[in-house]
């Protein structure tokens, strides 16, 4: 038990299963996620990573099993439900509008209105407050991003990824699920994203990091959960494993029992 696990889990998946017709995509997977922890969710293609991700995001419903957020059982009917419960998923599509700037994107669809009845009637935005909030976020997380009024169209892939993650965090989400955040990024861009994820850990945010790049997982994850053919085959501290062990687990060349024995 390390210090992170002494706190109560912020997100718990209890025996989640999902089938698509005859295909059992996810078979009774349980997972606890703690605040201030980065958990790597890895697996080969078809291991059930994206099905599990989509269940956490609220876009598909599990056949059986429960999702428990901060001790409360939740049923996600939609992505909005998941977001409202505090689980924010950043998909590879990022959901950013290139023609709007960073502040506009972060507040898109939830703009702050000027206080008082006049603001509500005339729908006048409090532009200054929105800029201030984003600027504060820049300072709090040490975001290496260009000026807050830069259009997203002018940002690199890594910077866009950081904006998308920052939006989730700035909205107070304590659990952030990142779907392949470093896919298709260059070395420098990847570094930008990974160092931001490390920042999140120190701000007590729980991060589920889905990837099939072993180097990236080993770099940021405290704990790793390996899926294979829909089942959880390993769940334990990253430090106990080498890259070779991980690959062996993912491909089924080794079982968790052997790994734990070897590590212990």
């Amino acid at each position: 038990m390390n210090t992170a696990e002494a706190k109560p889990a912020v997100l718990e998946l209890r025996g989640l299963s999902k089938s698509f017709g005859p295909v059992h995509a996810v078979k009774s997977v349980s997972l606890s996620i703690y605040p201030g922890e980065v958990i790597g969710l890895v697996g080969d293609n078809g291991a059930g990573k994206s099905t599990l991700t989509r269940m956490m995001a609220g876009t598909i419903r599990p056949d059986t099993g429960d999702i428990v957020v901060a001790g409360e059982k939740q049923t996600f009917e939609s992505a909005q439900d998941a977001r409202r419960a505090g689980v924010e998923t950043v998909f590879q599509t990022l959901a950013l509008v290139p023609g709007l700037d960073i502040v506009e994107n972060i507040f898109l669809g939830r703009e702050l209105l000027a206080s008082g009845p006049l603001g509500a009637v005339t729908r006048t935005m409090d532009v200054a407050a929105m800029r201030r909030r984003v600027q504060e976020g820049y300072e709090r997380f040490g975001l290496g991003l260009p000026d807050i009024r830069t259009k997203v169209a002018g940002l690199s892939g890594g910077q866009r990824q950081v904006v998308a993650i920052a939006r989730a965090v700035l909205w107070g989400s304590r659990i952030v699920v990142l779907d392949e955040p470093t896919a298709a990024l260059g070395v420098k861009q990847t570094e930008l994203v990974l160092s931001f994820i490390e920042q999140l850990r120190s701000h007590n945010v729980a991060v589920v990091f889905i990837s099939h790049n072993m180097q990236h997982v080993m770099r940021v994850a405290d704990r790793v959960c390996v899926l294979r053919l829909g089942r959880k085959v390993f769940d334990g501290q990253m430090s106990a494993l080498t890259g070779t062990d991980l690959v062996a687990l993912m491909t089924g060349a080794a079982t968790a029992v052997e790994q734990v024995a070897a590590a212990g």
């Binding site: 260059g186 072993m214 180097q215 080498t242 070779t244 991980l246 690959v247 993912m250 491909t251």
Partner: peptide
């Protein structure tokens, strides 16, 4: 920049 010279799934094995 060139993408990392690590193929999917085989990364990290030294």
């Amino acid at each position: 920049e060139p993408n990392e010279p690590v193929a999917q799934g085989t990364g990290g094995s030294q």
